Computed example of a mutant assay.
Amino acid sequence: MPDKLPNVLIASFPAGPWQTNCYLMARAEGGPCVVVDPGVGATEGVRRGIEQYGLTLDAVLLTHGHVDHVASAAQIADEAEVPVWIHEADADLLSEPLLALSEDSRPILESLYGSTTFTPPRDVRNYDGDVVTAGIRFATRHAPGHTPGCTLLLPETDDALLVLAGDVVFAGSIGRTDMPRGSAFEMASSLATQVLPLPDEAHLLPGHGPATTVGHERINNPWLQPHALMALQNPIDDGK
């Protein structure tokens, strides 16, 4: 999905068996870019996008550490000799993905990679405020719940407010909280303090599925309604 919004180029494609949205973002064709969430099988799609738009890679940004969002990060970043950015709470998932997955995921990883452990990227950096790369300033908002390190990324543009939402919120749904390291209580807090205060016109670019807006989700997403947030804050069983 190529798109041109004010002062920013975005190209995206769904990758791997989980159809995770991988994004390339740049100020313009022919310039530096970032890749956001290169998951399982994303390497060739990233290479094609970089070649198609004449881009050079400056960094890999990760919204969180689940394998379907990070599996290709090391290969892409190390080949280009660029850093990978992630919240420190999820950094260990770059090498030990099963720490935040159910045991049912073990045979899937073994089938895909022959192992359940990965070699992490050579240059891993932790979010600490804004990240400036490829000529774009990305504001970071910590939004735990799906994983402890979930982070919303807000690239600075001239007119449009964009939010790379990862698996915090989707069109009509939110990220699951029943896997290891997930927390329904923290998810409710993140939705209430990081997502709902955003203006209605903010464009949400989620980790799975179609793009949407905060205004649309505020009205139509059942998980963003007051009773649903209260239920998340007071779960009968948080799976722990």
Rank of each mutant, 00 (worst) to 15 (best):
L101C: 11
F185E: 02
I108F: 09
A165W: 04
G135P: 00
E217C: 02
L164G: 04
T177D: 03
L5N: 03
V60Y: 02
E51L: 14
F170H: 02
D92E: 08
T56L: 01
D158T: 14
N220S: 10
T147Q: 11
R122Q: 10
G30F: 10
V36F: 09
P107F: 10
L204Y: 06
M230K: 13
G239A: 10
R48P: 00
A160S: 12
G135V: 03
H66I: 15
A15C: 12
L57D: 09
Y127R: 11
Y53S: 13
I219P: 00
L205R: 01
A202K: 00
H69W: 01
H203S: 04
D37Q: 05
D58R: 10
L161D: 06
D238L: 00
V35L: 06
P14Q: 03
T213M: 13
R141K: 11
Y127N: 07
A134G: 04
L229G: 07
L99E: 07
P235E: 00
Y23S: 02
T177V: 11
V169W: 08
A11C: 12
T56F: 01
A228F: 04
L162N: 09
P199G: 07
N7G: 14
G149Y: 01
Q233M: 14
P206N: 13
A74G: 04
T151P: 13
P2D: 09
Q75I: 08
L154C: 11
D178A: 15
L162Q: 10
T133S: 14
S105D: 12
R141W: 13
S95C: 06
Q225M: 14
H64G: 03
L61M: 06
A202M: 13
T212S: 12
H227R: 11
T213C: 13
G41S: 11
P97C: 05
L93S: 07
R141I: 15
L153F: 04
V82N: 02
G65Q: 00
G45W: 06
A160G: 05
G129R: 11
N220T: 10
A171K: 12
G16M: 12
T116P: 00
L152K: 07
S105P: 00
D104M: 14
T119E: 07
G129C: 15
L205Q: 01
V132R: 12
I108R: 07
P17M: 08
T20Y: 09
